[in-house]
Design a protein around this nucleic acid. Structure first.
Length: 808
RNA sequence: GCUGGUGUGGCGGAACUGGCAGACGCCCGGGACUUAAAAUCCCGUUCUGGCAACAGAGUACCGGUUCGAUUCCGGUCACCAGCACCA
């Protein structure tokens, strides 16, 4: 008989809702556990199976911890600002707020249909003015501390979205959202000084329990490198050209210098006429400016550039005069935007030197610099380097750095790849930046009393191609009096990026209704930090890094109680389509969770999505394999329904150790996120109950249902009630296992001859080595195989195996 | 190019700290029940040879350490992800 999942699942979802079974209430005496998943962006497509995997996983953890007696906070909300909503709204001529409302309603229904144990009373929406009041408040605090600033600079511009992008959103030179090639534009932008936190964002990774690949990826993104800055004199103009290098030891090998096309000195030298071939240099500079980032990386191998005739630099180490070039292989945004070129020991410089016929000097012996650059730092010895000759690279680095410092020619320097965060978007559907610009006073933040600065209703919120926000057309909203001096002033019309609201939402969950503060101190002290945060790898260098930065800032100003927001971070693999390809509408391989629920129930979907494979790895969806999970539930239903108290139960030969082992295994597997093997263990136990019978008097059924309940909460709850157990399966204590019940009296021992398995014998668990070997040697098969051979060695691994080595 | 990861039956995947490879599930084959089918229950299911007992091979590939290697070491190949002229 199959169970009626539709009815049962609705019944218990309503029950949990009405009774607020999973509401989190602060109880200072109780141990808290804060489980967090990344709140969804409520897109028009509805919930995706990609959401179900991490959400189900953390729901299982939350449900288990609750049963362990911990005070669990497992909240949900909506990251509801964002471009797709705005684009949909423009296309269909509706207001983004209406679209958002509709999508959130739909998401809420879908999330509830999956039976997640969220505390719905704490749900937050980033588009709610009562919420984004505090997003704006944090921005103002950052402005006050000098961490938010406006600056004209080259930015990533997506010509399709008509919007600037953060570096993190423009990886690989294409727009993260729409895939269009990103171009460079000069624009005055709001920036957040995340670089000021670079060192701490890096160092504090050692204090948190993040999976290794997350740490590695953040470390690489922050990209710390230690070296020296070195100053070269330009005798023709009297300027100083400063470079950053990680190889100061190679200073004697510098044969030319390169500055980026955007370097300020180039502009200066062009204006002053110091550059003799101004036409050529200007042409090169313009061509570089026209290239998109994508084109720049495409042509990365072919070095191009132009020499700056009339400009030379003086090597501080040996006083030699060397030529200076501009080339776009030198980035304006890293280091000083200029390099000292050491073609003998840097691959890129070597390539450039070959194209331009520049001298290559060997200063570290060990390679052949005529064939290729020798970049090994470990083995080489300094040559052609004056007072550095004979030293190892590492010693030379120290010696030359000290020498530069003594002579005032340079010093030890640390550089980061991390760039400041472009924090403005020229779009409508985002948090307004609460700033007013006055000709006399500059940028003036709104006072807290005027927050939230609510997004005004506009007629037309289509993006402009000029790079102005749609809000700029709202003249009566834009034109205000300066808050300081009263003169005419203008509001900032750019809005915040999507990442703003999600950078602190986990703090709001602690106290979501607070109108006096982003959350009360008591609530934050009790609930934060987040104990366990699971989310996608795609957010590692975006949301995860951004929110760590905001949290550190909030910690610094005394709002957040801890230096790090998340104690533990785990990550799930993607679910692919049945064809092994990434799910997408165009491929037609998208699995809609709603359809699966309708067909086979939420409990089955939850089970399958956890059984599908290793949680951390990508896994293809398999419609057939879902059946196995459905069968498990039917078998449990029939086990407890039709066989209840029947003859099968009377057998009750299932050994107590099986039950105890399953309790241990399922509990440990949940903590290790090995959900697939936890479910396999449940399947095995059910198989055993079918074969041997379950003993209700021992509580076998109760234990099974309790273990099942985090995975398949609805059916567990229903059967719990049918069995007449008191309370709810969801809140009943997690079963305990008896340590003494885990091992057998008789254990199997593998018997090998020369490392090859020949047979298996059973011995008493407390048998000693002698007894086991005696048993092995008296085994009929072993006797036969051993005949006429001399036993030269026996290896005995207690409880595992015996390996016999024969001669002849 | 750099960084990280992965490679196990027809398929998804198991395997503690070097100790019985393939748990669990899907597919498939057989049986029971049924007038029949579906569902359900039971059995089998890495490959090769054999009716079978059994024998041999086998964890991407080549080699090494070891009584014993999916696991450790060296090398090769393939795939996935991230970064990418970061000086």
């Amino acid at each position: 008989m199959k169970y009626n999942f539709t009815e049962i699942e609705k019944k218990w979802q309503s029950y949990w809702d009405e009774h607020k079974t999973f509401a989190a209430t602060q109880e200072d005496s109780k141990e808290k556990f804060y489980a967090l998943i990344e709140f969804p962006y409520p897109s028009g497509d509805g919930l995706h199976v990609g959401h179900a995997r991490p959400y189900t996983a953390m729901d299982i953890v939350a449900r288990k911890r609750r049963k362990l007696g911990q005070n669990v906070l497992f909240p949900i909300g909506f990251d509801s600002f964002g471009l797709p909503t705005e684009n949909f709204a423009i296309k269909n001529k509706v207001h983004p707020a209406d679209v958002t409302k509709r999508n959130i309603t739909r998401f809420t229904e879908q999330l509830k249909a999956l039976g997640y144990s969220f505390d719905w009373d704490r749900a937050v929406e980033t588009t709610d003015p009562a919420y984004y009041k505090w997003t704006q408040w944090i921005f103002i605090k950052m402005f006050e501390k000098g961490l938010a600033y406006k600056q004209k600079m080259p930015v990533n511009w997506c010509p399709s979205c008509n919007c600037v992008l953060a570096n993190e959103e423009a990886q690989g030179g294409v727009c993260e959202r729409c895939g269009s090639p990103v171009v460079r534009r000069e624009k005055s932008q709001w920036m957040l000084k995340i670089t000021e936190y670079a060192e701490r964002l890096l160092d504090d990774l050692d204090t948190v329990d993040f999976i290794e690949r997350v740490k590695v990826q953040q470390k690489n993104w922050i990209g710390k490198s230690t070296g020296a800055s070195v100053t070269f004199a330009v005798p023709e103009t009297g300027d100083k050209l400063t470079v950053f290098t990680t190889r100061p030891d190679t200073l004697f090998g510098v044969t030319y210098m390169v500055v980026s096309p955007e370097h300020a000195l180039v502009e200066q030298w062009l204006t002053s006429g110091a550059i003799k071939n101004a036409q050529e240099v200007t042409a090169y500079r313009d061509a570089a400016a026209r290239k998109s980032d994508f084109e720049r990386t495409e042509t990365a191998k072919d070095k191009t550039g132009a020499s700056l005739d009339g400009i030379t630099a003086e090597n501080p180490a040996n006083g030699e005069k060397i030529p200076v070039f501009i080339s776009d292989y030198v980035l304006a945004t890293y280091g000083t935007g200029a390099i000292m070129a050491v073609p003998g020991h840097d691959t890129r410089d070597w390539e450039f030197a070959k194209v331009f016929g520049l001298p290559i000097i060997e200063v570290v012996a060990g390679g052949d610099v005529e064939k290729e650059a020798f970049t090994d730092c470990e083995t080489g010895q300094m040559v052609n380097s004056g007072f550095l000759n004979g030293l190892a690279v590492s010693q030379a680095k120290e010696k030359i750095t000290a020498w530069l410092e003594d002579g005032g020619l340079g010093h030890k320097t640390v550089n980061f790849k991390l760039r400041d965060w472009v924090f403005a978007r020229q779009r409508y559907w985002g948090e307004p930046i609460p700033m007013v610009y006055c000709e006399h006073c500059g940028y003036v933040p709104l006072p807290e009393s005027e927050l939230p600065l609510v997004l005004p209703q506009v007629e037309n919120y289509e993006p402009t191609t000029t790079g102005e926000s749609p809000l700029s057309k709202m003249t009566d909203w834009v034109n205000v009096k300066c808050l300081k001096c009263g003169h005419a002033a203008k509001r900032e019309t750019d809005t915040m990026p999507q990442w703003a609201g999600s950078s602190w939402y986990f703090l709001r969950y602690a106290d979501p209704k607070n109108s006096e503060a982003l959350a009360s101190k008591e609530a934050l002290d009790y609930w934060t930090p987040v104990d366990w945060y699971n989310g996608g790898m795609e957010h590692t260098t975006l949301h995860l890094l951004y929110s760590r930065f905001w949290h550190k800032f909030l910690y610094d100003i005394g709002v957040a109680p801890t230096a790090e927001p998340y104690k533990k971070r785990t990550s799930h693999g993607m679910i692919l389509g049945a064809d092994g390809q990434k799910m997408s509408k165009s491929r037609g391989n998208v699995v809609n969770p709603g359809e699966v629920i309708a067909e086979t129930g939420a409990d089955t979907l939850r089970l399958y999505i956890m059984f599908i494979g290793d949680f951390e790895k990508t896994a293809p969806w398999s419609p057939d394999a879902v059946k196995g999970c459905r069968r498990l539930l039917d078998r449990i239903w029939n086990l407890t329904e039709t066989r209840r108290g029947g003859d099968d139960f009377a057998l009750s030969k299932t050994h107590e150790k099986s039950v105890n082992r399953t309790i241990k295994k399922v509990g440990e597997d949940i903590e290790a996120m090995k959900f697939n093997t936890a479910i396999a263990a449940l399947m095995s136990l059910v198989n055993e109950f079918y074969g041997q019978g379950a003993d209700p008097s021992r509580g076998d059924i109760r234990t099974l249902l309790s273990l099942l309940s985090p995975f398949a909460p609805h059916i567990a709850e229903e059967l719990w009630q049918i069995q007449g157990f008191s309370g709810l399966a969801s809140t009943a204590p997690w079963p305990e296992y008896d340590e003494t019940m885990l091992s057998d009296n008789d254990i199997p021992i593998a018997v090998q001859i020369g490392g090859k398995l020949k047979t298996t014998i059973t011995v008493a668990a407390d048998a000693d080595e002698q007894a086991v070997i005696a048993a092995v040697l008296s085994d009929e098969k072993i006797t036969r195989l051993a005949e006429g051979k001399e036993l030269v060695r026996t290896i005995y691994v207690p409880g595992r195996l015996v390996n016999l080595i024969f001669k002849g």
